[in-house]
Amino acid sequence: MTDLHEISLLLQAGKAKAVTEAVAQALDEGVSAYDILEKGLLDGMNAVGERFKNNEIFVPEVLVAARAMNRGMALLKPLLAAEGVEAAGRVCIGTVQGDLHDIGKNLVRMMMEGKGLEVIDLGTDVSPATFVQTAIEQNCSVICCSALLTTTMGVMGDVVRAAEAAGIRDRVRIMVGGAPVTEAFCRQIGADAYSCDAASAADKAVEFCRELADKH
């Protein structure tokens, strides 16, 4: 019998091949895709997120762990749909218009996926209109904006205004992050949350998704 905690540990060590094999074996043994996801993959990414927050591990370790998770997820995805398991929520993410630096954004995406969220990655240089349109069409609960440059972070304010103009502010939360962004800036532009690291951003997004699901 496959120990699901073992899958979590393999994922934390970034062993993609071993994770894939262990997931396949657990499925063969009749373990539900949901259990493998929760107690194996997401449990592992949770631990990775905590260690990242505590400065014990850094970007490259998160990256290899996320790669291992993605390999395992590829096996689980069709089965999860069949089992009727829904994602913890849906968010869209991108670097704002004029900003091409996506390493931080990618890290946030991985952490969010590690929390069981469905993430629509809009890539880099994303216009406020695209953020808002995606949130409407794909029914996202959260818009996540990333900026590395002090010269582009102002665009985040445009995203907030575009969301207001589209009348979706009551059902979409806007999160902001990136090296020059601060809590004060977040408040100033009227966004809903600032996170100082990728793991905290993922926690916050889950919180928002739950809150909005309860509301509706």
């Binding site: 970007v59 091409l100 630096h101």
Partner: peptide, 16 residues
């Protein structure tokens, strides 16, 4: 280099 795929790879490799 910003958004350059090979650079991102090398960057990750060079952090440790």
């Amino acid at each position: 280099l910003s958004g350059h795929p090979a650079f991102s790879e090398h960057y990750m490799d060079a952090i440790a």
